[in-house]
Amino acid sequence: MIAKEAIRVLAAHRGDAIAVCALGVAANEWWDATKAEDCFQMHGAMGFAASFALGLALSLPNVNIWIINSDGSLCMNPGCLLTEAAQAPRNLKHFVIDNQVYQTVGAVPMVNAGRTDYAGLARAAGIASTHTIDNVPEMEKQLPRLIAGPGPTFVVLRVEPDPSHINTPPVTYEGPEMKYRFGRALEKRFGISVFNSSGY
């Protein structure tokens, strides 16, 4: 399967989950598939969307939080798996789009491409529920159970490199606009206060 297919299937199963997307093609595909206001797309801090999602999950323990990560971002901060395992948030699902390349810079091969077992890394870090899926029928079959079960759950979606990804445009919101749209969406859905009465 290619990333676009994997993301489409994932998006169809998201239900009420709030998503945090690492920057890159997976984020662009998620935006293309969902146009969701209640999704935070990182414009920077490559590698740390998972840490951001963990902070969100710990702060909203009754809300399903998904991190849509990428292999490049995971390679930049594999330590996030240890922190995730230690905190063990039941409401967190961690998906990694693994295309074995840095797609946005011209499909340059990932470090140790094709030989690293990311699910194995997560398992060794202490996350008990780890999975690798490489085709759409298997995603359709396994996702309902994985999503319904308690987290933390770590799922590698292994896809083929696909040059057409660069034709999927990124989210159209600027950095601060992303912050306010996301924050306001969470305030509206969950009755929380992200911003004060003066708007900051």
């Binding site: 840490s51 951001f52 969100l56 996030c80 924050g183």
Partner: peptide, 13 residues
């Protein structure tokens, strides 16, 4: 990680 966990918490209020 610490600053990003704290940043995520901001959006959880």
């Amino acid at each position: 990680e610490a600053v990003m966990v704290a940043s995520g918490a901001f959006f959880g209020g």
